[in-house]
């Protein structure tokens, strides 16, 4: 599943972060989400949505080769991950975070719950390939 980001519609409410966490970790927190909302205040005074665009930089950087491509997204093989944090550091969108309890990286599963909950359609599910849509 791919997403189109409409930054100008985002009002910073973070419902997307909670939906992501609940859907993927069964936890009510903003600290386990695979996306990030960047408030830019006091200037320029707006929000930027940061999501995984499946660029593959994490997989390429992983010393354990624990991240692999499956169909249209990257997934973590937890048993292979050493929680070294290399992928988190290298992510160009800065959306990879560590699960505070396990230190394992949190990867977008493409479930679409963030887009579904967003009351302002700031995250839109696209049928096409994200790279093309955002190009």
């Amino acid at each position: 599943m791919q997403f189109i980001l409409h930054h100008e519609r985002c009002s910073g409410c973070r419902a997307c972060l909670l939906a992501c966490s609940v859907a993927n970790f069964r936890e009510i927190t903003t600290a386990r989400a695979a996306l990030r909302i960047e408030p830019r205040f006091p200037a320029p005074g707006d929000y930027r949505i940061h999501m995984c665009d499946h660029c593959g930089a994490c997989a390429e950087a992983c010393p354990e080769e624990a991240i692999e491509r499956k169909e249209d997204r990257y997934v973590l093989r937890e048993e292979a991950c050493s929680a070294c944090g290399t992928c988190i550091e290298i992510c160009p969108n800065e959306v990879l975070g560590a699960n505070p309890e396990t230190d394992l990286p949190i990867l977008c599963t493409g479930c679409g719950e963030c887009a579904a909950i967003c009351p302002r359609d700031a995250i839109e599910i696209a049928g096409e390939d994200l790279q093309e849509v955002n190009a």
Binding site: E8, S11, G12, C13, R14, A15, L18, F41, P44, G45, D46, Y47, P119, R120
Partner: peptide
């Protein structure tokens, strides 16, 4: 107005941030 600015989980942001 520059942007709508909402509180936590608010679907109807009343905050209007501007210059």
């Amino acid at each position: 107005k520059v942007t709508d600015k909402g509180c936590f989980c608010c679907p109807t942001p009343c905050g209007k941030y501007g210059r």
